[in-house]
Amino acid sequence: MSQRQRLILFSVAMAGLAACFGWAASGLPGFGNYPGPYGPVILHDAVAQTRATGVVSAVNFDYRGFDTLGEEFILFTAAAGLSVVLRRLRGEREREPDREPETDNSNKPGTSAAVKVPALLFTGPTVLIGWWLASHAQANPSGGFQGGVTLASALALVYLAGEFIAFRRLSPVMLTDAVEAAGAGGFAVIGLIALAMGLPYLDNFVPLGTIPGSVSSGGTIPLISFFVGLEVAAAFTLIIGEFLEQTLLIRRGLWITSRSSWSPGSSPSACMGS
């Protein structure tokens, strides 16, 4: 199809689809009039049943914990798939004969101090925030997922502050893989423990605690949240690390082949400004 034909067909079809949408939307209750009954039942029962005051976390890690298990493994699988696709590339590049062997890192342009210092300063608080988010799922608007992503960004800050080498030292591939596997697998195993105790899969078998919303309340909810945080942090570290490595390899290759065409403005650290 030519671009024009495609555009015409798409416009007509999209108009039809939009009409379908309108037809469907006319059957929805008006905005702000959620009819239930799923939400209200959960709102009514959640605190009593799970001792978690963060109902969204209760849904995520308890009522619909099995969904979250699937979701974690989607991330797990994507990270594994990404490793397959990108590591092949890396191995190949290392074998390429016309490249000079990896040499001293002094070749690489360093990050400026203006970026380095704030980045380093931010790393500690970011780790703290990430940890707090991951461990307070049962009470506040937070949970393993947000905490995990925040932890992974802390590692990205380390990269910004220092160099890729430090990033890799903090997150060696084997370790990241192992942590990721531990996070995702740990979640699955928690469910299995319940099964071994004769309960349904993922049943909340830990004593719920008495004070709703405290750190020790919620039974398996904080536990699962912790493993989710582990898995998410590792998966994102792995994903960012793989892409970083790609960029750096190219950068080094470029540096070696033609020093003149290097433009410092487009170093990966520039992207953190966004």
């Binding site: 531990a182 697998g185 699955a188 469910g191 349904p200």
Partner: peptide, 16 residues
């Protein structure tokens, strides 16, 4: 639940 969970745990173990 086992048909879903067993392969998942096996996958995590293999990656680890």
């Amino acid at each position: 639940s086992l048909p879903v969970v067993v392969p998942l745990i096996a996958a995590a173990l293999l990656l680890a």
